[in-house]
């Protein structure tokens, strides 16, 4: 079995894996980082979004072997100890989740959205950018509010 090595949430990891292993399986099953979810098998729901070298990607549609040498950040890598990342805090404050299944992907997508689109996001931009993230519970309204607030809070904290 080939070996894969990468950095996940700042820690170097390495394992022998079946070439078929998807990044999401590597994260959840090999590393036990179960915050990244799988909500579909058609690459459409976005529950599995993580950052690979800074880009938000669907870890269910990425081979772990392709990530050799990459730096990966998952939802577990955002908070600093007990202190939530401003985007996580904004989702909590704005009631941007109900069951929470879609939330890790929503937050990882939103953090990258802020990096690409800046801290002052209007509703239209947020809705367009969340096109690849499906939520069965909230109706999106509070998610959009949370992302706008989280983006502002990130600016205030220099993120």
């Amino acid at each position: 079995m080939p070996t894969v090595s990468m950095t996940v949430n700042g820690k170097s990891v390495s394992a022998d894996i079946d070439p078929r292993t998807l990044l999401v399986q590597f994260l959840r099953e090999t590393l036990q980082l179960t915050g990244t979810h799988v909500g579909c098998d058609t690459s459409q729901c976005g529950c599995c979004v993580v950052h690979v070298n800074g880009d938000a990607v669907k870890s269910c549609t990425t081979l772990a072997l392709t990530c050799e040498g990459a730096s990966v950040v998952t939802i577990e890598g955002l908070a600093k100890g007990d202190e939530l990342h401003p985007m996580q805090a904004a989702f909590r404050e704005n009631h941007g989740l109900q069951c929470g299944f879609c939330t890790p992907g929503m937050i990882m997508t939103s953090v990258e959205m802020v990096r690409r689109k800046g801290h002052d996001l209007d509703e239209h931009t947020i809705r367009e950018e969340l096109e690849g993230n499906l939520c069965r519970c909230t109706g999106y309204h509070n998610i959009v509010k949370a992302v706008a607030a989280g983006a502002k809070a990130m600016a205030a904290q220099g993120k």
Binding site: S43, G46, V49, D55, A56, V57, K58, T61, T62, T109, E112, M113, R116, E129, E131, G132, N133
Partner: peptide, 9 residues
Amino acid sequence: IGDPAVRNK
């Protein structure tokens, strides 16, 4: 094309 994560790859 698709959505942001699709366009990123």
